[in-house]
Design a protein around this nucleic acid. Sequence first.
DNA 1: ATCCTTTTTGCACACGAGTGCAAAATAGGC
DNA 2: GCCTATTTTGCACTCGTGTGCAAAAAGGAT
Lengths: 340, 340
Amino acid sequence: MGDERIPGKSGGFITSRDVARRAGVSRSAVSRTFTPGTSVSPRMRERVLKAAEELGYRVNRLAQGLISERSILVGVLVANMSAPYMSRQLEALSRALLQEGMQCLLLNAAAAEDHGISELIDRILEFRVRAIVVMSGAPPSAIVQECLANGVRVILVNKLIDGATTDTILTDDMAGARLAAQRLIDDGCRRPAIISSSAGTLSLTRRTQAAAARFAEDGLTPVIWEKGTTTYETGARAARETLSDAGIDGAFCVTDFLALGYLDAARTEMGRRVPEDLSVVGFDDIPQASWGSYRMTTLRQPVDTLIAAIMRAILRDQADTGAVHEVLPVELVERTTTRK
Amino acid sequence: MGDERIPGKSGGFITSRDVARRAGVSRSAVSRTFTPGTSVSPRMRERVLKAAEELGYRVNRLAQGLISERSILVGVLVANMSAPYMSRQLEALSRALLQEGMQCLLLNAAAAEDHGISELIDRILEFRVRAIVVMSGAPPSAIVQECLANGVRVILVNKLIDGATTDTILTDDMAGARLAAQRLIDDGCRRPAIISSSAGTLSLTRRTQAAAARFAEDGLTPVIWEKGTTTYETGARAARETLSDAGIDGAFCVTDFLALGYLDAARTEMGRRVPEDLSVVGFDDIPQASWGSYRMTTLRQPVDTLIAAIMRAILRDQADTGAVHEVLPVELVERTTTRK
DNA sequence: ATCCTTTTTGCACACGAGTGCAAAATAGGC
DNA sequence: GCCTATTTTGCACTCGTGTGCAAAAAGGAT
């Protein structure tokens, strides 16, 4: 009897058995007390709760997850975490998950380097997550299939995978880009530029193409510049290179990040007045876009709507195997970098 | 025999038993194959690996965590996730954790609202995490004690709790603030302002006080402005209010975020030339601080060093109960918002 | 008090993995 | 071929929890 584990001894967690012993009831009683929707007599419940309180007991989610098929863990795969528009989405998502009683297992896709996205998803699957939200580069369709086969829902955000029928949530890049082009056309631009990076993301190529198409409808052929990474510096470089052409009178930068760099270089280095000589439209509406020295016209990504759609997909009934496809509207926010 | 579970059937995960059955060996053999440092004959190992490969087996971390005392889960408690300096730290931390083979359980402290930080930490503890990294508001010392009692290491980043002896990692706010004040003094400022928010964070108050002390050493009494939230807008407001005093010739903003707002409003609204009429120094060196329209002098937080220190604390031997206290040096980055 | 109905409680098993220990198999020496 | 030393393998227990099922208790009606 001397070898009985002392409850609360350093290192050891308190288990339901410890609580049961203390309260003088069976272990099942403890389990039932903490499981909603089960019947325990008020007297017993009270004794259990008291003992649990005194001992500092909390259920072991690992053991719990071993039993119940419905996990509260959600894997979130993110790239570019420190990019403003992404950190904003992550912030909102993590908060929403918490409020729904779920937990967020965060994976930084940048750590994948040599091993690739597949290995990361593999590691998430080891935790028997309920769903995986992919906000980074598109994973190979094979691994997506494997997730689905294991009953793990995969939610792609602004990504498309052919061959895999899984939940997909997209912001309406095309409609947004058309709005941007429209705005420049309305500003009377005759020689517009479209600024993008060489990343080749789905969102970025779609924005580029849709804007180009809209310009074409009005008989305009835009200068398309696509180089480097999707950063402020690249935007500045784009301004230097495209604005050596004195005729350029409007620019649609497919990302606010690019747009801010473009704007700065256009003004300080290339001597353009915005919006008098040059109209500029961005995309995403990151916080900096509304700051004093920019006050930039841009397209607002609907973060709340996006998160709501993701949560809806996560919370959907497990049995419901149909894939959801949602396209979320974007909105033109007019500030001071366009005329009208 | 017809009721035997079909391996790989929809919904069910593959278990080590399935693999054992397929390979015609015992379950222990499978377990040993995937546990480093155990002896299995090459022939058997190969058969197991083959079967595992074919079935798509992966170990269940939940079950594994139930056994082994050393968890690979690390809880990360973050506030202000979308603030640039924070998202940068989170990005680096999540990457480092992944590379060390650990997983990051992300908790957004903003979701705590009514329930408080304690409840969030409680929820992390339910997962038997190895450690908790606190990058948000300071948790009550009682709950920290409870973590330590349960063998969960608590690592406070830029936070201090009295009464609790736990790992603490601080950036050297005081030395940094002194450098900032020094820089303004060297610029010949005679009437400096210190701009902070009313958040009352440890870091912020320390920076304010240390700078004030440094000014005092040179016989200067700074205007101290502490209002509102720690945002761009507040910085702009601070400029409007402090610069109505025409004598102010230097400003130390305790955060780059504040500094950027201050800078914009000082230039565009208050008609100051920076650095000719006014020197401005920030703190953190967020990416925007180096952007074209700002190019701001500021103090660089050593993200890499910080993350390295956090990882060291996490990986420390469990038995080592002594608390680590580290103070990390900061560095003055001189750009164009100061003279000299 | 007796019988019947309803609720409460505890036993025992399951979940999926790691591991000490003893049995089985193999290698080594002559 | 036989005996011993060494490795390999499998049994059975453990971790902490949820839950079906049957026994026990409580409540109600006569």
